[in-house]
Amino acid sequence: MSDSDRLAPLSVTGLHKSYGHHAVLADLNLSVEPGSFVCIVGPSGAGKTTLLRCLSGLLAPTSGSVRYGDRPVNQPLAEIAVVFQDYRGSLLPWMRVRDNVAFPLEGRGVSRSARRARADECLAAVGLPGVGDKYPWQLSGGMQQRVAIARGLAYDAAVLLMDEPFGSVDAQARFDLEDLVLRLRRDLGITVIVVTHDIDEAVYLGDRVIVLGGQPATVIDNLTVDLGQDRDQIHTRALPRFAELRTRVLTRIRGGAAAPDPAPPAQLDVSRT
């Protein structure tokens, strides 16, 4: 497969999803450019996980389409790796950490030694060298989530889809994981899509924040985060611009109109998708 096929925009057009008569998502449109970091934020129960499952091809839309480049995403693609919120449930408890990370490669027929090398490499990349021989339960929650991220990396996908990836770890581990994902994105040039209910996290991580809202949910705001590529937990979060962006997102989630933005319009993408 050529590189241009591998790196492609992930686009959603006119997506509707209902469970029976209960509509969860309606007329949802968005597009994620290759190499960008997009956070999808919305209140609990807004259908964020449903959207992520549609994006990953795990769930078929009721109508509308999800496409990766010019291919429909109607089943999981090799270009998209998923990191689930429930890391405890998504790591296989009977496999050692290294085998967990290498498992998707086994499905691709990669040789044992190559799998092993790749798994160790990815574990090192997430800051967990030397835990390959442990079982998942022997690691802390934050470390288990790193293993799940390493598995996503080993899969060698162009897109990393993450569902509330840091929701169940403690605050310090959460900051570390956020910075880890930012670094991986910068080093590997992968596309990252994070679904979260945490507004601060969305603004801190994303190049773009997409706000979901309404019943059924749709995109109610789509803003560019002009905080640059280099971010750190202490200074970035203290910037006045950070506060403005989070205020705007919070206002939209609470149902307010888009607050007038003081930034120069050229830097902002306020167009509603």
Partner: peptide, 15 residues
């Protein structure tokens, strides 16, 4: 959750 993971990572049937 495990079935979902296995599906997301396209694990072949025999494996």
């Amino acid at each position: 959750m495990i079935s979902e993971t296995v599906r997301a990572y396209r694990i072949p049937r025999l494996l």
